[in-house]
Amino acid sequence: MTSQFEYNTISNAEDEKRLGKILQQCFNSPPDESIQTYFQRIGRENFRSIHDSNQMIGGLAIIPQGQWFGGKCIPMGGIAAVGIAPEYRGSGAALELMRQTIRELYRRGIPLSTLYAATQRLYRQAGYEQGGSLCSWEMPTQSIMMRDRTLPMQAVNLDHHQLHNLYQQQAKLTNGYLQRHQVIWQEIVESSTYAYLIGEDQPEGYLMFKQQKVKDSDCIVVRDLVLLTPGAVRRFWTFIGDHRSQIEKVRWKHSLNVFFTLMLPEQTAKIVDLGRWMVRIVDVIAALKNRGYPQELVTELHLEVRDSLIVENNDKFTLKVAQGRGEITRGGRGELKLNVSGLSPLYTGLFTPQQLQLVGHLEATETALLSATQIFAGSSPWMSDFF
């Protein structure tokens, strides 16, 4: 069936201005130059629009990034600023916009797409499902009680280029972390006031933060944090605790399980906000091939994937894992059956195969469940970035 909508790139200043006005209304943004700056940073070539009868009625941004899973970085299209003019909502334009975007990503050889959803229902219709978490934590500085100043704290300029290599080391170890686009780095830098390297000759981490009032309390808000050694963790907590005479609380973003609070004497850290980002497996073969896997594991998994949008994904596949790598071929016994949306939380490791089976996202034999559990084992996926 031919769609009534037309999917286009943003090719000129007039298109950019029209889409900018739609997005400003959708996201309740003030009518200033901020949307123009946003277009400049992401790049006009990365915006798409949807038209009805030659009238632009909405659009979105595709932020070219990467995402780390199993120690490997997979190309990913981050979807942002999805907006439809209010008079066209309910027309099916948003779903068609997402479907066309996914088809484009497939043609371009981009295996994954990730986004933060204002409403899950729309994106689930396009094959997305929950993939990982972003949590905001808070704790009183008085409760930290860490006194280890072995490593120096070196104040540095707010320049992400000198921090990039440290960030990459942590990203490789963290399922869900981004290979950040420039626009995300810029937002972190601009929303920070202070930056410190932890360590001197060979830094072991870094900290970027601002100080502000949060619910009438003076607070350190951590904007970016990399901790690569036990010494860096201790120095971070000591540094934050040393603010206790003036700063009441510290806030930071992390996973549901913050490992570095294990060094603290009491459980005073609390989750103040929890959200989940969504993932779409755009290209099943490329996504499974490029992901990393447990190094010592040798096994295989027979999948059957159902995907009504990308017909090339609608097939049986055999995934063979050895030496931390995956080899995937078409065919096999189809012992683990699931929709492409159900593949997302399995692929990222957000939920176990048994949990996904309990909520009806997959059907599998006991052998396939065991293999899938071993293949996708790892730390719970999360990221500290919102886009």
Rank of each mutant, 00 (worst) to 15 (best):
Lys17Val: 03
Leu370Ile: 07
Ile102Phe: 04
Gln162Thr: 09
Ser34Ile: 01
Thr329Ser: 13
Gln355Gly: 08
Gly92Tyr: 15
Ala13Gly: 09
Gly77Ala: 08
Ala117Asn: 12
Leu301Arg: 05
His161Met: 15
Phe260Trp: 15
Glu138Asn: 07
Thr261Ala: 13
Gln65Leu: 10
Gln130Phe: 15
Ser344Asp: 06
Leu297Gly: 07
Ser191Gln: 12
Gly332Phe: 01
Glu300Trp: 03
Arg234Asp: 05
Ile79Leu: 14
Lys253Val: 11
Cys26Lys: 00
Tyr347Ala: 03
Gly324Arg: 05
Gln130Met: 15
Leu370Lys: 14
Glu327Gln: 07
Gln25Asn: 05
Lys249Tyr: 07
Ser217Lys: 11
Gln24Trp: 01
Ile328Arg: 12
Gln65His: 13
Gln267Val: 13
Leu336Arg: 11
Asp273Ile: 00
Ile240Trp: 14
Ser3Gln: 15
Ser371Leu: 07
Gly77Asp: 11
Leu227Ile: 06
Ala126Pro: 01
His51Arg: 14
Ile102Thr: 10
Asn54Phe: 04
Leu134Met: 00
Pro353Met: 08
Ser34Pro: 00
Ser245Met: 07
Ile84Gln: 02
Pro111Asp: 03
Asp52Gln: 15
Val214Gly: 02
Asn313Met: 01
Ile247Ser: 08
Ile240Cys: 01
Glu33Asp: 12
Asn257Lys: 12
Lys316Asn: 09
Glu300Tyr: 06
Glu96Ala: 06
Asp15Ala: 06
Leu301Ser: 09
Thr101Arg: 09
Gly231Ser: 02
Tyr7Phe: 15
Leu297Asn: 05
Asp216Asn: 02
Glu14Arg: 10
Lys289Thr: 15
Leu95Thr: 05
His160Ser: 14
Thr174Ala: 12
Glu248Tyr: 06
Asn12Ile: 09
Gln169Phe: 13
Arg325Ala: 14
Asp216Met: 05
Thr9Phe: 11
Arg280Glu: 00
Arg280Pro: 01
Ala13Val: 07
Gly90Arg: 00
Leu319Tyr: 03
Met153Trp: 07
Thr329Met: 12
Ile247Met: 13
Phe239Tyr: 04
Leu358Lys: 15
Asn54Thr: 03
Pro203Thr: 06
Leu370Tyr: 09
Val183Ser: 08
Gly231Pro: 04
Met278Val: 02
Pro345Phe: 01
Ala364Leu: 04
Glu187Ala: 13
Glu14Tyr: 13
Arg244Pro: 05
Val298Thr: 15
Ser192Tyr: 06
Trp237Pro: 03
Glu363Trp: 10
Tyr347Phe: 10
Leu370His: 13
Glu6Thr: 15
Asn12Gly: 09
Phe209Pro: 00
Tyr7Trp: 14
